[in-house]
Simulated assay, not measured.
Amino acid sequence: MYGGALNGGLDAPRTGAVVIFFNPDAACVARANQLAAMTHCVVVDNTPTIQTASELGLSAAVVYLPNGENRGIATAINQGIEALVQAGLDIAVLFDQDSEPPASLLTELPMVIARANDAGEKVALVGPAYDDSRLRGVAPFVRFRWWKLKRIVPEGDKPIDVDFLISSGSCINLRWWAGIGPMDDALFIDLVDLEWCVRAKHMGYRILGVPWVRMSHELGSAPLRVFGNAYPMYGPLRHYYQFRNAIALMKRSSMPMTWKSTELIKLPVRLLIYCFFLKQRKQHLNMVWRGIADGWHGRLGPYR
């Protein structure tokens, strides 16, 4: 499998996109319409109001699935993928509503999977390197190691075995979807992609980073800079989910001990940052403690 030389007589796999909406603006709608002009596109809308595709300004080519409530990232992804499976497609490319993929992503990533299928390799997921100019620029791919993630610079023309990929821009091989199973609905949001990747790898499937494909993607709101380091920031509710799901997953025997060791380092650091560097520290810390308690007691699903 090599970048720039993937066709090799193989037919392009039947590819569709899944875009998750939540209170989308006009730019989000325009991006979905642009995707629909290039590939089969399913939009799953978690906005807590029921709208129609025409009210939003979506193209007639978009398959629009409004939930009328926020059912979470995991459930929305599962709904979108099921729609692609029912349509007889081979590949599902996942996007957040603000993702801006290059056109090459929709051809290069599916062909990496096509090559793997042709070679009899069990590749479940491939994904691009992502670029967030507000943080470190092009983010490295990662593998789990004791106490610290191994960071791999996305270079070269060969896919790189990794331990997980973020969902936005990632490309799921639907050949293996039913065997691996859907995203974990109970997690709702945060670490959904990580849990699925761990599950797939535990079952013997590969997760590949594709270094020659790059996608612009911003993590969270404006990053917080502490002692020269930039940390992506979210609201108190997202911090609730981050801590809750991290604690809940650390209690699962299926999660690697190497990953758990890195979380034992990262969670206290995040707590210190919230204590001393955030303006709304009381609200953030309150939601973090609730998340820790709910994660420990196994209270998952949407925050109530």
Results as ranks from 00 to 15, higher is better:
M183F: 15
V18F: 04
I265D: 06
A186Y: 03
I265A: 13
G291W: 00
A5C: 13
G204N: 13
S104D: 11
Y2V: 14
L56I: 09
L237T: 08
D131K: 03
T258H: 04
R134H: 12
R252D: 10
A114Q: 04
P268E: 06
F22N: 02
I81S: 01
A293E: 10
R214I: 14
G235E: 09
R151L: 13
S104Q: 12
R281A: 07
M183Q: 05
V43A: 04
A76D: 06
I207S: 01
L165D: 02
N286A: 10
M38A: 14
C171Y: 02
S168R: 00
P48W: 08
L6C: 08
A116F: 09
L285F: 12
L264Q: 08
S99T: 05
N286K: 11
A186Q: 07
S168M: 01
T15Q: 02
L208H: 02
R115F: 10
L267I: 08
G4N: 13
H239E: 14
R136N: 15
Y205Q: 03
L149M: 14
E69N: 11
R199W: 08
G57R: 05
G127W: 02
S104I: 10
Q280E: 15
K266V: 09
I265E: 11
F22H: 09
I265V: 14
V85H: 05
G9I: 07
V18H: 00
K158R: 15
I152G: 07
I20T: 03
F277K: 08
M38P: 01
P154G: 10
G9W: 12
A26E: 15
G209R: 00
P66R: 06
G301R: 13
R134I: 05
M233G: 06
F243R: 04
G220K: 02
V142P: 01
A12K: 09
G16H: 00
P140S: 12
R136D: 15
P302D: 03
